[in-house]
């Protein structure tokens, strides 16, 4: 078939797939985002049965599937688990490259969250480094209310 039309131009139909969404985040995540927006506090959840602390919060324990209803406050400080530096642009990126993004285990939590790492020399990025959350001035009750995590400067 391709042979018959090889001298012609291939044809395309161009367009978009555009779909607007308004997600309800649910009760627990609403509380999580409101605590960040109103008090600059990052919360996790603690499973009342197996006692693990999960962040971002889930309404069901990821280990024992017990129901979880209440948040526990975390310090906003944590440890870098892993990271990368993005050097390429894409249609979905929220930051201009180069920027660092990592998986951060907050003190007292058993799971880790993904977020940006700012105010850092990329060469100094290292698993295990201590980080603390920096919040945006204007906060809209979403994950970008946390501006990024930055290295904790004062040792000890």
């Amino acid at each position: 078939m391709a042979n018959e039309v090889v001298k012609k131009e291939p044809m395309f139909t161009e367009g978009y797939v555009i779909m607007p969404y308004k997600y309800s985040v649910g009760t627990l995540a609403s509380k999580f985002f409101i605590e960040i927006r109103d008090h600059k506090k990052i919360n996790g959840v603690k499973c009342p049965k197996c006692n693990i602390v999960i962040v971002p919060p889930r309404s069901v324990c990821i280990k024992c599937f017990n129901k979880i209803e209440d948040l526990v406050e975390l310090s906003g400080k944590g440890t870098l688990v892993t990271y990368t530096v993005a050097h390429y642009d894409s249609a979905v990126q929220a930051m201009k490259p180069p920027y660092a993004i990592g998986v951060i285990k907050l003190d007292g939590a058993d799971t880790a969250i993904t977020h940006f790492i700012g105010e850092v020399d990329f060469k100094e990025l290292k698993a295990g480094m201590k980080l603390e959350a920096v919040f945006n001035e204007t906060r809209n009750a979403n994950i970008l209310d946390i501006k990024y995590f930055k290295p904790v400067k004062n040792k000890g």
Partner: peptide
């Protein structure tokens, strides 16, 4: 309790081959 909603719009550019 104030309930939070997140507004997001999926927008994918497409160039579909029509084929023969």
């Amino acid at each position: 309790l104030e309930l939070i909603y997140l507004d997001m719009t999926l927008k994918m550019p497409f160039k579909w081959n029509t084929g023969e």
